[in-house]
Amino acid sequence: MSLTIALAQINTCLGNVERNLEKHIALVKEARKSGADLLIFPELSLTGYVLQDLASAVAHRPTRDDPIFRPLLEASQDIDLVVGFVDEDLRSRFYIAAAYLSRGQVLHVHHKVYLPTYGLFDEGRFFAWGNSISAFDTRFGRLGMLICEDFWHASPPYLLWLDGADLLLLTSASPGRGLGSEEQLESARWVEHINRAYASLFTIFVAHANRVGYEDGLNFWGGSTVFDPNGALLARGPYHEESLALAEVDLRQIHRTRARLPLLRDERIALVQRELNRILQTS
């Protein structure tokens, strides 16, 4: 089975959800014309990133009654969508979230579990911490979603792998930093390294949508990628420019790679659990 993934490497309007929604709808049309089956928007694609006290004002609930999600759910009839937003739960906690929409349904919502609150980041001040990591079933198989800092930690991708995800959908609003003499920023190099590593270590597909544009002096570097289960690069968006990057993904590659390299078959989960229990008890 083959699947065309589109990565919407967009700039956003900071705090203006309606304007960002219009851009999402336009991109959905463009991606459908290009034959995409799944369109992935970056982290906080409906709101922008440096929200600070705007976080509560731009929050939405991913339901059919919501004025932002209604048109997005309608748009998901022919193409599956991953959108980034601020999710307000029923008790008004605000999460950095990604929703997977398919055929008018919300199949899964992931709340960011690692909120960077160091260096230039201050997410823990403004947002609630997500508390679960789980894969979910779609018409393309079982997938997993993670948001930016979530995959700077090795455990969330590992857990999704064990939970059955053969395709990781990663979203970021990654600020560019670390300019040396190389052609890539340090932050871009690091993210590409780890995404290639996850694809290789877990023999899965890894698709990453990162945004572009500037907010309060931060630049977002784009460079969205798709890696296959051999760690080969299938597509990469340009750095620092808006684009719709397309990758045709042959899901049979999982079969071929795992026939050669049975890392999943040989993974000793019970051993991991035993050792984790020991480490937790003794530390």
């Binding site: 300019l179 052609e183 890539q184």
Partner: peptide, 21 residues
């Protein structure tokens, strides 16, 4: 200490910053 920067990338980021802001 090597303080060299990639001038092409610096130029792209800084001109983009000026235009956008």
């Amino acid at each position: 200490v090597d303080l060299h920067i990639n001038p092409t990338l610096a130029r792209k980021i800084l001109t983009g910053f000026i235009r956008t802001e």
